[in-house]
Design a protein around this nucleic acid. Structure first.
Lengths: 115, 115
DNA sequence: AAGCGTTGCTAAATATACCAAGCAAGCCAC
DNA sequence: GTGGCTTGCTTGGTATATTTAGCAACGCTT
């Protein structure tokens, strides 16, 4: 199944914000070691508590992260698959795939780093 | 320590429905052994996946169970007095400025055209 | 070059979710 | 009573979430 490891998503998110692993550790109290494993796909289901902290640090909706890692989310059905009929909160950019998401985050990092 | 004995809550829920541990096991695919531990307070943070199954079996809102065991729930109402500081609307990419938004849209177009 | 702080990462260890197997007590038929 | 069936429960084990300690490569500054 879509092996689009969400680890890369987390990594791209962090880098787009210009944060280091130890930066995030400081903010969230999650060890940098664990964060590294998270980003390299060695963790399957991080606890909701940690997802919540990360959602704050990265300023993305908690629900989004819950869905990303495969937990059921309160209002809709499943996620992880892009064919969901869910009226997913439209992003300002319109519908984007997981792969595009990562690329956009990487580009965002580039944008913010120049100048 | 929270001493939050939600175990008794689960037990009361099950009994109110006239279900046995093995009944619930059949329905949810959660072992009766585990269910027993859950109800006797030997489990601290059951996975959202299992909470979801239980919410279906017991016909209570998923969010309610999430809150019961101490997980943050999507719309505020956390156990700890945490009130959202602001309703920042964020998307999967985190906060982005208008200028960035435009650039991202252009880049998205580029991405999609390069096939 | 040598040292120093930073970065991401890994290995080993601990904690805990969860299951398979089984046990003791209850209940109802024979 | 004895046997079978059901109940809740415990014990031992496996898997996995998470941390502590450390390491190697990098960039600085001197």
């Amino acid at each position: 199944m879509s092996t689009t490891e969400y680890g890369q998503y987390f990594k791209a998110l962090r880098e787009s914000k210009g944060l280091t692993l130890r930066n995030v550790e400081k903010i969230t109290d999650i060890s940098n070691a664990y964060l590294s494993q998270l980003e390299s796909g060695k963790v399957k289901q991080p606890s909701p508590n940690n997802l919540y902290k990360l959602s704050e640090a990265y300023e993305v909706p908690y629900e989004t992260l819950m869905g990303k890692v495969g937990y059921p989310i309160p209002n809709g059905g499943d996620t992880s698959s892009e064919r969901s009929k869910s009226a997913e909160v439209s992003n300002k950019l319109g519908e984007i795939s997981s792969d595009e998401e990562i690329e956009l985050l990487q580009y965002l990092k580039f944008i913010r780093n120049r100048k």
